[in-house]
Structure formats: C-alpha cells, structure tokens
Amino acid sequence: MGEITLPKNRITTLYPLTKCAFSLLIVLVAITTFNIYGKLAILAAINLLAALSGVWQLFNQRLFKSVGILIVLITLLQTFFYPGHDVLFALGRFTATREGLTFALKLGLNLANIGGAIIWLFTVTTEKDFVLALEKQGMSAKASYVVLSTLQMVPVLKKQSQLIMKAQSARGVETEGNVFVRAKAFVPTLIPLVLSSIQGTEERALTLEARGFSLDRPKTYYYDIHPEPRDKMLVTATGILAVAYVIGKVVYWLWV
C-alpha cells in the first residue's frame, strides 16, 4: 500500500467514488457491447483514460500481469477448439477457425475491458482512499478494517513465509529444487506461519479493543477526503449517461 506515488492531476485527484462511477459505466458498456469493433473502441477508450490519468504504462503493466496471460490462453484454446467451419490454418491435428478466433477475441476483449476498467480504478485510486470513501458512504468500520488490514498483511505474511523458509533451510530442510521438493518444504513453512497468524489475530483483536475500535460514538478521520462540487456533478452526469445508455440499448434491441 502506498508504494507507488500517483501523479496528481484532474483525474487522479477525483473522489474515489467518482472514479468508481466511471469504472462501473465502462463495465456496463463493456458487457453490453457485442460487436468486436465496439469492444476494441472501449479498450482504446480505457487506454486513453489511463493516458490522461498519467498512468498509462503502469496501467498496462498491471493489465498484462493480471489478465494478459489468461487472455492469451483463452485466445489460443478458443481459436483451436471452438466449433467452426471456416478454417484459417492447421497445426498438426488442430485447426484454427475464423469462428473460434472471433469468439476468442470477443471473450478476450471482454476480459480486458472489464478487468481494465477495474484495474484503471485501482491504479488511479489508493486502496486507503477507496475504503475510506466506502466507509463514509456507510460501509461498516469492521469491513473497512478487514479490507485495509488484509492489504497490509499480505506483504508482511509473504516476508514472514520467506523468513520461515530460510530458517527451515538453515535447519537442513530442502527448500530449493523441483516442484516436489518445494511442495514438501511447504508444509513445515505453512504450519508455523498459520499458527503464528492465528495467535497474532487474537492479540490484534484485543489491540483494536484497547484502542476503542468498537466504541459506539462518532469517529474522527485524521486522514480525510471529501467529494468536491465537480465530483457531485460528474457522478450525476455519469448516472444520467448510464441510464440514457441502458434506455438507448433497450430501444435499439426492441427496434432491431
């Protein structure tokens, strides 16, 4: 959390829920667009948004790391195995069909667009801001704590597991080698990690109570964010756009 410094511009400084509204609108348009060119246009729009936000490179890195490999895999599988007659080329016993490629591209683009909308949101918004905005919107303090602490604990647990791994290795447990050797080393690593985490959770729950976590009184937010008038305007505009889009889409389906 907070490792990458976001560029400050008109988009990144928007209220998290405003950016969330944009993201949801993109997801809505993405799941209701069936034309392959339309899907490509959405991907281009997300890229444009990422570029305008000053995070184009980071956004694409994250997009590739999260859904890129899946898209490549889906494209290959569907191109060769989706039923079709229009053969494009053959690789041994397998034939690539135009129907398969079209279906694969549609599926892949869907994934890229939906994933892209969400990835863009979390590239231009810190988790801390997003959760705080949700909490101020009525999400329970417990839920926001679970989200924030989980995000903080993941790298900590990763470090701990590496430390345990090193300790086990120093005691003669084989931790390097093929999959089976690593799998065998996993158990003696996992048990102390899980047990210490359970013990830690108990004490951390008491720590929270010792700091008045469950007190039934209004809390102060030392770090605070507020929506500005432009946010209210943009959320309203996005809402109107979404409603207009849905009505337009329904009318189009009814007529065509």
Partner: peptide, 16 residues
C-alpha cells in the same frame, strides 16, 4: 491502556 508483550501484534494494520 494496555501495552502487550509482542509489539508486532500491536500494530493494528488499519493505518499505513
């Protein structure tokens, strides 16, 4: 106020 024995478990994880 209660200060526990293990300092690591007293970091709430709620703040960065």
């Amino acid at each position: 106020g209660y200060v526990f024995q293990n300092p690591f478990n007293q970091i709430t994880g709620a703040r960065d």
